[in-house]
Nucleic acid binder design. Structure first.
Length: 283
DNA sequence: ATGGGGGCCTGCCGGC
DNA sequence: TGCCGGCAGGCCCCCA
């Protein structure tokens, strides 16, 4: 579910109620999500002040005052929602416990942060802050698409010689970290490149042209508060609205939006994932 | 090494 | 109304 824009949206929503504030208590309602929680997670979170809330790819990282970092991944269906903070920004009072509320953080300012994840593909872990870059889930990640290390030279080099379809290559988090199925579909549409095209067989200028388009799509999606299909909510419970701006995702059978194209959006399955595209103007 | 497919889970939606 | 198949934003792991 949540790709980079959704995770960044959640991070921005959580930051004002978490940064600089202490976690008084953590309720951990089950032993695991995708993997077992770290040993004594509730105790290791309790009494810690959140120094900084960061994002790396689709992961949220909370640096704690005691020298550990909490890693959070939302998987496909994870939500982190805030209730009852004293700033008055969040109108929702503390709701009754919902099904799949797996972890609840009680913040010293009165806010409550609830991690709800029906499918339990999400994850949480704790590590020494200085060891975070080498954590097994973070170590292999490619550059941040909105950062300086992600540029034309990098993408051209990363795709060179690759026989995998460009769709799969852009989903490969080692090449660029944070894109998921929706935004890859949207990027390829804007680039006019077929999702089937072999990554290493695209001329370098066309590969280079994807770099600003990737930044553009992600930037617009963050501005819109992410995309809400079924599960995603911002930290304050509000919906994102970038889904209304999709050119191809979920638009099978509908007309292509490119001026003068006249094509019809089609869906194909690659590596088990839907690739929405316009067969007419994506080559 | 690289690419493809299965599997992990629950929920929802459409068709019959 | 009810059941069933298909599908879902991620990503690890195994196999060829």
């Amino acid at each position: 579910m949540p790709e980079l824009p959704e995770v960044e949206t959640v991070r921005r929503g959580l930051a004002p109620v978490m940064e600089g504030h202490m976690i008084m208590r953590a309720d951990v309602n089950r032993p695991d999500l995708r993997w077992p929680f770290p040993t004594d997670m509730a105790a290791r979170l309790s009494g810690q002040r959140v120094e900084r809330l960061r994002r790396r790819s689709k992961y949220i990282l909370a640096d704690l005052s005691g020298g550990e970092t909490l890693l959070i991944h939302l998987g496909m269906s994870g939500r982190m929602t805030v209730s009852g903070d004293p700033l008055g920004r969040f109108v929702r009072d503390h709701p009754a416990m919902q099904k799949h509320d797996h972890v609840v953080l009680h913040i010293e300012n009165g806010a409550r942060i609830t991690f709800n994840d029906p499918r339990r593909f999400g994850a949480m872990d704790l590590m020494a802050t200085e060891a975070a870059p080498s954590h097994r889930l973070l170590a292999g990640l490619g550059p941040e698409p909105l950062g300086n290390a992600f540029n034309e030279d990098h993408l051209v080099a990363a795709l060179r010689g690759r026989m995998t379809p460009v769709k799969s290559a852009l989903l490969d988090q080692r090449i660029v970290a944070g894109l998921g199925n929706i935004y890859v579909c949207e990027v390829l549409f804007r680039a006019g490149i077929s999702p089937r095209r072999k990554a290493g067989r695209i001329a370098a200028p066309r590969v280079a042209a994807m770099v600003p388009l990737i930044r553009q799509v992600l930037g617009e999606a963050i501005e819109a508060g992410g995309s809400s299909l079924r599960d995603f909510r911002q930290a304050d419970g509000e919906l994102g609205y970038f889904q209304h701006a999709f050119d191809v995702y979920g638009r099978e059978g509908l007309p292509c939006r490119r001026d003068g194209c006249g094509g019809t959006i089609a869906r194909l399955v690659q590596a088990g994932r839907s690739s929405f595209h316009c067969p007419r103007c994506q080559r």
